[in-house]
Design a binder for these strands. Structure first.
Lengths: 120, 120
DNA sequence: AAAACAGTTGAGTGATTGTTCAACTGTATT
DNA sequence: AATACAGTTGAACAATCACTCAACTGTTTT
């Protein structure tokens, strides 16, 4: 029986387990997508923006006022949220209004909140 | 009626909205906790570790083998996951076995996966 | 007691990232 | 057409962070 090749610095202790788990792992791109999704939520500013938009549709100035931040900083983060498909926007004259992309975002936000409340 | 003080570079456009949303915002520590939680999930290595542990209880060497990483790198991330209460561990002789802290972690993982599948 | 092994930990480093600053769109007003 | 305003964007800087390396526990074996 041939030795297996390991690309880590460990002799494998539970070989069967490792093989079995390896089969059940997701594809790299899938992991990357899920990671990217959580990464977007893992920032204080973006989370507060999403929470604010969960209450009401708001323009960039409104959000900046709620968070006490500059328009520029907020706009950068809104860009990130847009690219991640977590928010939508519509222009009305000079003003751009933002809303949550869908109800799904709302659910995850509340799930996160529930999680930390349960911990306490 | 007195002018309001703004700590951003914007004249507020929708004043009533801003006040109303501001009241509904969470306390800073609450946001910080939720952010920290998502931040832990927002890393490729940690997510893969959690996914692996979702399949089976594993020791550090096993995890390192599954991910093709060094024990040290994995151990560092396990430390982060432990501090965030996402995993538990038990020692058995020289070996330390890790498991998910609770079913709640499992749920959030799967919620994240469903989210990205719906997007496609 | 000494060697071997599973795992942890601290310092250092390179990469990522959030905010600022300044310049820039695009739309509306005068 | 010129000014003003809402918003965007790129470069630069500071802070954060994941991995490496080396030294270290703690447990078992000989």
């Amino acid at each position: 029986m041939p030795k297996h090749e390991y690309s880590c610095d460990c002799p494998i202790i539970h070989h069967e387990k490792v093989e079995s788990v390896q089969k059940k792992m997701l594809q790299d791109p899938d992991f990357a997508q899920v990671t990217a999704f959580f990464k977007v939520l893992g920032d204080n500013t973006r989370l507060r923006i999403l929470w604010a938009l969960d209450q009401e549709e708001l323009c960039v100035c409104d959000i900046a006022s709620v968070l006490s931040m500059t328009k520029s900083a907020v706009s950068h983060q809104l860009g990130t949220l847009r690219r991640a498909n977590l928010v939508k926007c519509r222009r009305e004259g000079k003003t751009v209004f933002y809303t949550l992309a869908d109800h799904h975002v709302r659910q995850i936000l509340e799930a996160g909140l529930e999680h930390i409340k349960e911990e306490a």
